[in-house]
């Protein structure tokens, strides 16, 4: 590139060693040329790096979003399959219970049928319907939080769900479920990433805790509870409802029951 030169005072000239001496390049011009060369070199390198990065990021992002969409599709399909399997499981359990009663009563073991039903009910292996309360726990919405993103204080943790479950037990609840998962003797709740694991299933927010209990007295205890009032003031969303004709599903993980029973000395 042939750049125009600035006029300079006391301009020094140097002879071009390769020329015959007829043409000379001013020293200022050479420095300027070198500086411009370096400048454009930097601009060129940075431009190419930036373009390359943009192309790579685009490719990476499309790969990630492709994988994300694929997993979401798979998750939706598995959730639908899970729903069907649970419905089938519930129907089969009902049929088994009916047949068990029929078999025992036909053979004159009606007392055995009563004690079996009692054990099943206490273990949480039968569904239960009655009046009760529904507690819904949800993270703070982003608009509630001052910083634009939800802080730890604005998230529902497993301890919050456990607290509500323990409170409902102390109110005399006869059956409790968290997002449809029946609370049994071995149930625990732990945070796993953005979800909470209840029994062997993971559940995202909102957490809907249903309990069969005396609705009015339990509702009064829940609304007056100091910890829940404090959590609600920290922008998490907590809602209490008195509900009529609630159905709490049975615990149906027979593999887990078999495993616990086998460890406790009861074998098939």
């Amino acid at each position: 590139m042939n750049l125009p030169a600035f006029p300079m005072k006391n301009r020094k000239t140097v002879k071009n060693p390769n020329s015959s001496g007829a043409k000379t390049l001013p020293a200022g011009n050479r420095i300027r040329t070198v500086l411009f060369f370096v400048l454009f070199l930097f601009v060129g390198i940075l431009l190419s790096v930036t373009i390359r990065e943009a192309v790579l990021r685009g490719q990476q992002s499309s790969t990630l979003s492709g994988q994300y969409a694929q997993y979401q599709k798979q998750l939706a399909s598995l959730s639908s399959e899970n729903k069907n399997l649970k419905a089938e499981n519930e129907a089969l359990q009902e049929k088994r219970d009916e047949l068990t009663d029929t078999v025992l009563n036909e053979q004159g073991f009606s007392a055995l049928a009563v004690s079996l039903n009692k054990a099943r009910a206490l273990a949480g292996l039968t569904s239960l319907t009655g009046n009760g309360v529904t507690v819904t726990l949800n993270d703070a919405s982003v608009t509630d939080a001052s910083a634009g993103s939800v802080s730890q204080q604005g998230l529902i943790h497993s301890q919050d769900v456990q607290y509500v479950v323990d409170l409902l037990k102390s109110c005399g609840a006869s059956a409790i479920a968290v997002n449809g998962e029946r609370v049994v003797g071995t149930t625990f709740m732990i945070c796993t990433g953005p979800t909470i694991r209840v029994n062997n299933s993971r559940h995202p927010v909102p957490f809907v805790i249903t309990a069969i209990c005396e609705p009015d007295s339990t509702y009064a205890v829940l609304t007056a509870d100091a910890y829940l009032t404090y959590r609600a003031s920290g922008s998490v969303q907590i809602r209490f409802d008195r509900t009529q004709e609630l159905t709490i599903p049975a615990y149906s993980d027979t593999a887990a029951i078999d495993s616990v029973c086998s460890e406790l000395g009861v074998t098939s």
């Binding site: 079996l116 099943r120 273990a123 029951i257 078999d258 009861v266």
Partner: peptide, 19 residues
């Protein structure tokens, strides 16, 4: 059925256990 009953009782906490 008897095995089912034994399992339900153990799971419900209606039997003595040790281990």
């Amino acid at each position: 059925i008897m095995t089912e009953k034994a399992k339900a009782e153990a799971f419900a906490g209606l039997t003595d256990v040790h281990g």
